[in-house]
Design a protein around this nucleic acid. Structure first.
Length: 613
DNA sequence: AAAAAAT
């Protein structure tokens, strides 16, 4: 239980502190700098040789095994207690402090991503501002957490406990983050310890920061390698992949805030937009590249980007990235280009849902990783009210109109509350949007057949409240952070319960409440069982007719709520006995000591579950 | 069967 892993970590920690003497670490760092050979001097063929001598790169997996043995160099596996020691920043160049960028690319003035004139961004905020932008932390108390893996670093309670560096700390204050969310409390120490991570946590509970903070801080600690001359190829140090263009844009915007005035440059690349502008941005320098897979493959094939220097890889919505449509592309990027192999880079996978089959695929990319599951914000019981209504196909439009009418009278300040309507097909989205507009409902639509310009305009117009009804395909199901979505309507239900979970997660974000309504009919029978179970777990009112459908044997065969012991939604597949005997399984466990049910936070028995995304 | 993702 808790004491055992805490002790284990403490032991591991003190052990590695001894190993990682300050002078030794900074000495290695200094050596690594002088030994650096720019890629263009090593080989004309970018993939012909590994990017750098081994002591420049991160230590091998075995060095990192067990919470940061620092023998391989300061970049990875450094115990938290060592942070901020002399010699870390500046790559041991004697500059001291945190990663000052020396040499390399342009030093032009950085645009303030916080979009205010307050130079420090730290003017006293009014209470109402806090309320609008802040996260409702009360909703995050007492969340069940499960971690498993070897030597799991303990969580922190405050940002102050972690030395992320002055510049990043300042940005955290500018973002008005007062204390870390549960996923941040757990994931950041794990990542800072250099460990690979598979994390299940609701989008909107601070997931982006959970992988951005360690990346930014890690880049500053590791130092900025000099930019290779004589080539237009760029060498990002971190790569963040996401499944949709809009989500990549959103991550980019957030990451830019976090890295303001740190010297860390963040660039985004995605399809549907002119590549030349993205190329120009890349050539002005990039440390963190945020991208969608297709455009990145293009850039790699044109040799505009090399992954040789990647220290950090993060997959957002990782289960989507590894599903059938995406997996080959991801494999190509991660395994068949020039990225350092697992164990040498640090890999972080984040998603709200993580089916076991996908976990197994994902483990190909990970090395001795820690699995982390953080229960849903306040459990959806309180935050998202889920309703299911039986609506025959032919009645859907009039039923939708009834809902929208009812809501209109509810609207704040005469404005319609933001309503996100999910449909199954792109054509269906266009048709419904057209019909809504004909009926004087201000609607727009986002889907993959629209131009990127149209997609971005639609999203902006929705966010601003200008067009308070957005009809969307699953392109908008994941990750998008749209504040103030009051109502998610599943006009057409998805076939996969995970997609349902992600869709309704567009409301009830950051600890606020939301409403989700689903139109269910004969064509959704395969979802009956899993939907009923999900709603029950979330303490939602399940209509009797749905319970009846769910219990019919003929409909029971659909994809049930994965995990037989539902717990709280996420579970490390390595713990599932049915996977233990398949090839290579036993070695994986490093001689037991596997897993820690960190069910602290109190009060949650194994049966007290919550649906969470 | 559909959606997403490069030109």
């Amino acid at each position: 239980m808790r004491s055992s892993w805490a002790d284990a970590v403490e032991n591991a920690n003190s052990g590695s502190v001894e190993n990682a003497g300050t002078s030794g670490a900074s000495g290695a760092s200094a050596t690594s700098k002088s030994a650096y050979v720019p890629p263009h001097l090593r080989s004309k063929q970018p993939t012909a040789e590994p990017p750098a001598p081994s002591h420049t790169g991160p230590p091998s997996a075995s060095d990192r095994f067990g919470y940061g043995g620092a023998s391989g160099g300061p970049r990875y596996g450094v115990p938290r207690s060592d942070y901020g020691r002399q010699g870390y920043g500046g790559g041991g160049r004697g500059a001291g402090g945190w990663g000052s960028r020396s040499g390399g690319w342009s030093r032009e003035r950085e645009v303030n991503p916080f979009g205010n004139d307050d130079a420090d961004g730290l003017a006293e905020s009014t209470f109402s501002e806090q309320e609008n932008t802040g996260i409702n932390f009360d909703a995050y108390e007492d969340i069940p957490v499960e971690t498993s893996g070897d030597n799991v670093p303990p969580p922190v309670n405050t940002f102050a406990e972690i030395d992320l560096g002055d510049a990043l700390n300042l940005n955290i204050r500018r973002c008005k983050y007062v204390k870390p969310t549960p996923v941040q409390r757990h994931a950041i120490p794990i990542s800072l310890a250099g460990r690979d991570l598979m994390a299940c946590a609701q989008t909107g509970s601070g997931k982006t920061a959970a992988f951005c903070f360690p990346i930014i801080s890690g880049i500053m600690r590791g130092g900025f390698p000099p930019r290779p001359r004589g080539t237009r190829t760029v060498f990002p140090l971190a790569l963040i992949l996401s499944p949709t263009r809009e989500l990549s844009m959103q991550i980019h915007e957030e990451a830019r805030k976090f890295s303001y005035q740190t010297g860390v440059k963040v660039v985004v690349a995605y399809g549907g937009a002119p590549i030349n502008q993205q190329l120009r941005e890349l050539e002005r320098g990039v440390d963190i590249l945020v991208a969608t897979p297709g455009r990145l493959v293009d850039l790699l094939e044109r040799a505009k980007v090399s992954l040789q220097m990647i220290r950090f890889l993060a997959l957002d919505e990782a289960d989507r990235m590894l599903d059938m449509g995406f997996e080959p592309q991801i494999r190509k990027i991660v395994e068949q280009m020039d990225m350092p192999p697992r164990g040498e880079r640090q890999t972080m996978l984040f998603s709200a849902t993580f089916p076991k089959e996908i976990q197994r695929l994902a483990s190909d990319f990970l090395s001795n990783y820690i699995f982390l599951a953080v229960g849903r914000v306040g459990s959806s019981t309180d935050l998202i009210v889920q309703r299911v209504e039986f609506v025959p196909e032919s009645d859907k439009r009039s039923h939708l109109m009834d809902l929208l009418h009812a809501q209109r009278s509810n609207g704040v300040h005469g404005k319609q509350a933001l309503t996100l309507v999910f449909v199954e097909t792109k054509k269906g989205a266009d048709a419904l949007e057209h019909w809504l507009c004909m009926n004087h409902f201000p609607a727009t639509t986002i889907h993959g057949d629209r131009t990127q310009q149209e997609r971005e305009l639609a999203l902006r117009s929705f966010k601003s409240g200008n067009t308070p009804i957005l009809v969307a395909t699953d392109v908008a199901a994941r990750g998008l952070d749209i504040p103030h979505v009051a109502h998610v309507i599943n006009f057409d239900l998805p076939n996969d319960i995970d997609d349902y979970v992600h869709r309704i997660g567009r409301t009830g974000r950051a600890g606020k409440t939301g409403l989700a309504t689903a139109f269910f009919n004969e064509s959704n029978m395969s979802l009956a069982k899993s939907l009923a179970e999900l709603m029950q777990e979330a303490n939602q009112e399940v209509p009797d007719w749905l319970t009846r459908y769910a219990s019919r044997a003929s409909y029971g065969g659909g994809k049930g709520r994965r995990s037989s012991g539902a717990r709280f939604g996420g579970r490390d597949y390595r713990r599932d006995s049915s996977y233990n005997r398949s090839g290579g399984g036993s070695d994986y466990y490093g001689g037991g000591g596997y897993g820690n049910y960190g069910n602290y936070g109190g009060g949650y028995g194994a049966g007290a579950t919550s649906a969470w995304d």
